[in-house]
């Protein structure tokens, strides 16, 4: 009873705080200082059409590197938790972690299998397209990586016993990450600072090969994110 009252009190309090925010909220009427700078100078400084990409990859590149690290950490953590030592049979009672699912897993239907064999590569290519064009149109490494990962999900669905080539996955994961950091370093050495994409020419606006190293970096991010997400999915799927 006391607990219910407390919960009600908490909700009421935060509702009141949120209400204060809503009533006081006026919304932006114009761009703030840094946003204006990005919109005005972004094109000439970085040559990217998609300013969000410019921000993500360059202006706030350190955030993105951190974000990739978070994903990497989560993948490592999940791998550590679920991969390290087989999930043994119940230690203190209860249902063993989905072991019997392995047996009950049915083979997918013929149509799904064949269909996915055709669709999966297409989706993967689409994913690549998304991150390669990240500096020009909406989308980029994260979205592209996620799309690639969804292709893999489809693969998992259609081929329940499909096993990924872990070597390739691991190498992709490691190398894309390392090269990403390496490109950042190149920015430090050749251009203005760590993760500065301008060590490659800015190029002609609107082309694939423009905006300095942004497309390269975003592609690497895409590969990395894709590999991490696939790794996570693989770990979560596998009842080890």
């Amino acid at each position: 009873m006391i607990k219910r009252a407390l919960i009600f009190l908490v909700l009421a309090f935060f509702a009141w705080q949120f209400l204060l925010m809503v009533t006081g909220w006026e919304g932006l009427s114009g761009l703030g200082e840094i946003a204006r700078h990005y919109m005005e100078k972004g094109r000439e400084e970085l040559g990217a059409a998609n300013i969000v990409t410019a921000i993500v990859v360059t202006y706030r590149g350190l955030d993105t590197l951190g974000e990739v690290s978070v994903l990497f950490l989560a993948a490592a953590g999940i791998g550590f938790l679920l991969g390290a030592g087989r999930l043994s049979r119940k230690q203190d009672g209860g249902n063993a972690g989905g072991l019997e699912n392995e047996k009950t897993r049915r083979k997918a239907s013929e149509i799904l299998e064949t269909g996915s064999d055709i669709v999966v590569p297409a989706i993967a290519v689409f994913g690549v397209y998304i991150f390669v064009n990240g500096h020009l149109s909406p989308g980029g490494g994260f979205q592209g990586g996620a799309v690639i990962a969804s292709a893999i999900v489809l693969l998992f669905l259609s081929h329940p016993f499909y096993s990924l080539n872990h070597g390739v996955l691991k190498v992709t994961e490691s190398l894309s990450g390392t090269v990403y950091v390496g490109l950042g370093l190149l920015g430090l050495i050749l251009a203005g600072g760590f993760l500065d994409a301008r060590f490659l020419p800015v190029g002609e606006f609107g082309r694939i090969l423009s905006a300095g190293a942004i497309p390269v970096i975003y592609s690497l991010i895409g590969l990395k994110v894709g590999a991490e997400l696939v790794g996570i999915l693989e770990q979560m799927r596998r009842p080890s």
């Binding site: 679920l82 999930l87 043994s88 009672g93 209860g94 063993a96």
Partner: peptide
Amino acid sequence: AFIIRMYGKR
């Protein structure tokens, strides 16, 4: 992942 592992324990 934590939950899965915890579920495996208990």
